[in-house]
Design a protein around this nucleic acid. Structure first.
Length: 451
RNA sequence: GGCGAUGUGGCCGAGUGGUUUAGGCAAGGGCCUGCAAAGCCCUCCACCUGGGUUCGAUUCCCAGCAUCGCCUCCA
């Protein structure tokens, strides 16, 4: 029984699938107007791990993740830089998927673009207007939040409480709205801005109607799971849900949210604060697997601090994993230890307890090493257990690099020198290999080198 | 003002009403090794503060302190 925390009810509960054996997941994808930051990386990694685990456990997973390629921020940037907005969206999308592939994040099953669904969005908005749930003003079309009786379900706050205090931010379209919390479904365009025709006037989509239209169309009503970052819980996801509810349709059966990435001072990292911690920098300077490992070692709902220290620690840990992979490359394929697998499932099924599952991974690795040292017959099963867990995690071993013949020859020479007890030559050869960037490991079976 | 999260050993980071420890990194000791590397074993026994419940609380309750987030366009 697979259980996940449900944002709406604030409890961990069973994910009841619409169709047994199949799971449809919608992940709120990026708005393509800038380079991906660490928060984007966390969300995609968390849900990549979720997806891989569900797939590994035998479910047929359909993951839909959108690209929002029309948005005010895209227009702002296009104006600021004096270039076509498509230039920005195309470039950013390619940077995005390039970064994701470096993170070893599998491409979603479907990647719909907002601009491909504008007609459907207009259709949906028309229906909302028809049903009396939305209305046009001088600057756009708005959804009437008071017509959605459980508005605030995800925010865990009533409409009145939301409005009661705080919020010195500007309220969009305040002067024309029936209720201050009503939100834009359609925004009329100013001259020169990208626009699409609509019955109310040329304009562009407002509050993420694309997610509603695309999730319901591609996954169907009452799809299994909707996910995204904590910061999208309200108002983004609240508003998506409100649109579906106002349409009289079933939205996601369950909605989950991953925690923030915080900086060294413990503050949230995001674009709006201006302290963008670029994911591309991280990928450039560190083994991309390190970020995945750091996230695996903390729970997906907890805030995670990404700093030099824990990334460095993860890199060191990965070295151990790679050493294990190299050591066990020739271990015969065997069925994975059933206790390890059972325990792994138990942990992962409990709201994706990757920290405990990661502890299990290291424990299994240690036991496998000990079994190999002792020549114990349990070794192959434990090794297979490690491999299984890593597969479900999307954690890859560094592939053994092809060893050039002259390097292999030096390793052979090193062994010959050792056999002849010519340790000066052996040490010199080892230093030479290490100087060239090779990791040299000498065992009873001989010397192996790898990158 | 409303809602919510977090506070753990040298560092990161889980978890639990008590008995034997999360795990990773770092440090120290040992085994293995010609010496290393890799690996294995051992050590380092923490839980913001003040109350309360309890035979017993880091874990539950209350209060406080601190840090952080959301409350209209940020994953």
């Amino acid at each position: 029984m697979f259980r996940l925390y449900d944002t709406a009810t604030s409890e961990v509960r069973e994910l009841r699938l619409r169709t047994p054996g199949r799971v449809g997941i919608y992940l709120c994808g990026p708005t393509v107007y800038g380079p991906p930051h660490l928060g984007h990386g966390r969300a995609t990694l968390v849900y990549d791990i979720l997806r891989r685990y569900l797939t590994w456990s035998g479910l047929e997973v359909t993951l839909v993740s959108n690209i929002t390629d029309i948005d005010d921020k895209i227009i702002d940037r296009a104006n600021r830089e004096g270039r076509p907005w498509q230039d920005i969206t195309h470039k950013c999308e390619s940077v995005w998927f390039d970064a994701m592939s470096r993170l070893n994040v599998e491409r979603p099953t479907l990647v719909p673009h907002a601009t491909e669904y504008v007609d459907q969005m207009v259709g949906m908005i028309a229906e909302l207007v028809e049903r009396g749930r939305a209305y046009a003003t001088a600057d756009g079309v708005y959804l009437s939040v008071t017509s959605v009786n459980d508005y605030g379900l995800l925010a865990h706050q009533s409409l009145d409480d939301m409005l009661s205090g705080g919020g010195d931010r500007e309220v969009f379209g305040a002067e024309n709205k029936n209720h201050p919390a009503d939100f834009a479904l359609w925004k009329f365009s100013k001259p020169g801005e990208p626009s699409w025709p609509s019955p109310w006037g040329d304009g562009r989509p407002g509050w993420h109607s694309e997610c509603v239209v695309m999730s319901l169309e591609l996954l169907g009503d009452g799809f299994d799971l909707h996910c995204g970052g904590m910061d999208l819980k309200f108002p983004h996801h609240e508003n998506e849900r409100a649109q579906a509810v106002a349409l009289g349709r079933d939205f996601a059966r369950q909605m989950i949210h991953n925690g923030f990435v915080v900086d060294t001072e413990g503050e949230k990292m995001s674009n709006s604060l201006g302290n963008v911690a670029n994911l591309l920098d991280l990928l450039e300077h560190y083994d991309p697997r390190a970020y995945r490992l750091v996230l695996l070692q903390s729970h997906y709902r907890s805030p995670v601090r990404v700093g030099q220290d824990n990334i460095d620690a993860a890199v060191t840990t990965l070295a151990g994993l790679d050493a294990f992979a190299a050591r066990t490359a020739s271990v015969v394929v065997a069925p994975a230890d059933s206790d390890v697998i059972a325990r792994f499932r138990e942990l992962m099924d409990d709201d994706l307890d990757t920290p405990s599952a990661t502890a299990l991974l290291f424990d299994t690795m240690r036991r496998a090493n000990a079994a190999l040292d002792a020549g114990d017959p349990s070794a192959p099963g434990l090794v297979a257990g490690v491999r299984e867990i890593c597969t479900a995690f999307g954690l890859e071993f560094k592939a053994a690099a092809d060893v050039p013949t002259e390097i292999a020859a030096k390793a052979t020479a090193l062994d010959a020198a050792r056999a002849a007890k010519d340790f000066a030559t052996a040490d010199a050869l080892r230093a030479e290999l290490q100087g060239a960037g090779w990791i040299v490991e000498t065992t009873k079976a001989g010397t192996t080198v790898r990158r």
